[in-house]
Nucleic acid binder design. Sequence first.
DNA 1: AATGCTTAGGGGATATTTCCCCTTTATTTT
DNA 2: AAAATAAAGGGGAAATATCCCCTAAGCATT
Lengths: 214, 214
Amino acid sequence: MNKIDIIIVDDHQLFSTALHSLIGKFEDFNVIKVLNDGAEVVDYFKNGNPVPEIILMDIQMPIMNGIEATIWLKKNQPKIKVLALSMECDEATILAMLRAGAKGYLLKDIHPMVLKHAIHELHNVGFYYTENVTNTLLKSHAEDLNTNTIVLKDRELEFLKLTCTEMTYKQIAEKMFLSPKTVENYREALFEKLEAKTRIGLVLYAIKNKIVIL
Amino acid sequence: MNKIDIIIVDDHQLFSTALHSLIGKFEDFNVIKVLNDGAEVVDYFKNGNPVPEIILMDIQMPIMNGIEATIWLKKNQPKIKVLALSMECDEATILAMLRAGAKGYLLKDIHPMVLKHAIHELHNVGFYYTENVTNTLLKSHAEDLNTNTIVLKDRELEFLKLTCTEMTYKQIAEKMFLSPKTVENYREALFEKLEAKTRIGLVLYAIKNKIVIL
DNA sequence: AATGCTTAGGGGATATTTCCCCTTTATTTT
DNA sequence: AAAATAAAGGGGAAATATCCCCTAAGCATT
């Protein structure tokens, strides 16, 4: 039987190391890489490295957070199944992560056997939600989880993050190595996509969907 | 021995009623009023009603949330000790509530005797923090909790909330029955107080400090 | 009576945001 | 090969936001 290839993404070295050795003990899993930030995920795949079946993804990470990284994966590596592994149990974060495309959501303090089971379910069935998460979904009326097919492009995401800053568009343009007029186009595109009327609307969207985390 | 006067503020009728009858069983407490929203708290005291020693304050409420209400109380009824009673256990909310001036923070699923004990501690010692909250405080380096003495005035708070909206200042002025120029002054005052450079800065502050809840 | 604080309002200038319409070049899809 | 799409850039105008400095009435403190 083939092993399931896994990548671990977590900025907390202690945790990712522990997880690595833990998963190593399960004979049917194979950790092919440990990455420390969402940004490293993007680099990893842009460089054409081996594609895993499953990614165990932390959420809070310094450069690119797990939600952004999952959004990127949805677009660029749609076959990979992302299992969110997080400390946060609040509804907003769970919803944001699932909207981003995660196929499962576990809290970090679960029993190892639950993790093992979750990975298998993800691999065989395609998703795995704990009771906790299911409840959250039901509570939130599961509105637009699947309806909401808003997919932001890389540069749009980058722009959106900078928009949640006290930078002017001119400054954002410099930071993105673009002309102010191009940044202007990103702004207009996002106004449409996210149904915003002003820059404030973009900021609210980004925060609600945890594209920026305060 | 004198009873301790208490006001309950919670929009969830079922809960506040249950709480009322529960506290009624403790002979040393006296619930003098049950209110259903932060806004009712403000009205209550503006009308010169009896002042309690302790307020049990919910956080999520439809019109004015518990954090705003506590900020208002800090300024207008500083002797009242606010005990937050909430479902949220995330760091940001706890910190925001304590910054707002709450003297204690309990989760709603605690044992009644813990609540009783907490109220007594609040009354006698002046504060009561569960281990949970203490941990959160230590983790967050307890930076500016006491240093941060930013007190927003009523109208400033009102303005700030509207600022987190896709309304222009002109529209905000209309809604507040002020001239655009006066709103302009509020903006400038808040820029200084909150160390913001742009309107985005105000929005970020309001969200971080849970003055608006997304 | 004088001082200070709060609340409300204003003038005038500059920078930024927002809107609408248009071009080019490369890549992807059909 | 033709058509659609993504990514980058632009002109010009109107609406908003930001800055700095100033006035006046009301109220509380000293």
